[in-house]
Amino acid sequence: MLELRLVQGSLLKKVLDAMRELVNDANFDCSATGFSLQAMDSSHVALVALLLRSEGFEHYRCDRNLSMGMNLNNMSKMLRCAGNDDIITIKADDGTDSVTFMFESPNQDKIADFEMKLMDIDSEHLGIPDAEYQAIVRMPSSEFARICKDLSSIGDTVVISVTKEGVKFSTAGDIGTANIVCRQNKTVDKPEEATIIEMQEPVSLTFALRYLNSFTKATPLSDTVTISLSSELPVVVEYKIAEMGYIRYYLAPKIEE
């Protein structure tokens, strides 16, 4: 028996929007820790890892570990039927092949339930060890989204370089080149507007902009984004989900031949 009640139902809609461009089908894993997911895109270049901790739910009952295979577009179709202020409850019984999403309006005058068929998905979990990163950049998520969008109109790949001067995003294409440098800036009115660079040593890596643009679909989930870089490791782009957990994206770098 599984029953997860999330007062801030719109958060689940945002989480789905943040993943479904990258991944079609995924197994949601439910345990005492929380509601989580790890899935790769079809080309195994990018990976998304989601954790919504059990403490973040108003009610969280998960009698035994359960893995539920869902088509994210179908799930999104159902969640779009929930109002933005609705409370969403996810329910599943042991041994059934469906999941129920229950939507309650804030004043309880409308209650809807949508039952979705589950699917069997062969998921390949990768072990992601904790690593020391050479550079960690924290910046406003809207700024990162703007940079990725702007650069993708010029080129297909971005070189992200961190030095003590700041973080530089560079691209090149048929029509020309572009460089955007963001310097560390802690003197802002609000902490979420700061750009903070923690650098152990300079690092420079190349990534496909198409994937980074997909990651920025998580922008509505968090005011800030953290980009962790190390040579010869996938970049980690993390959006913290307040009170709940995180959505992290891993992207393998382009390798020089």
Partner: peptide
Amino acid sequence: KSSQGRLESFFKPM
């Protein structure tokens, strides 16, 4: 010239 790396080159399957 550069080629796109894959995640399995960095992380092992569990």
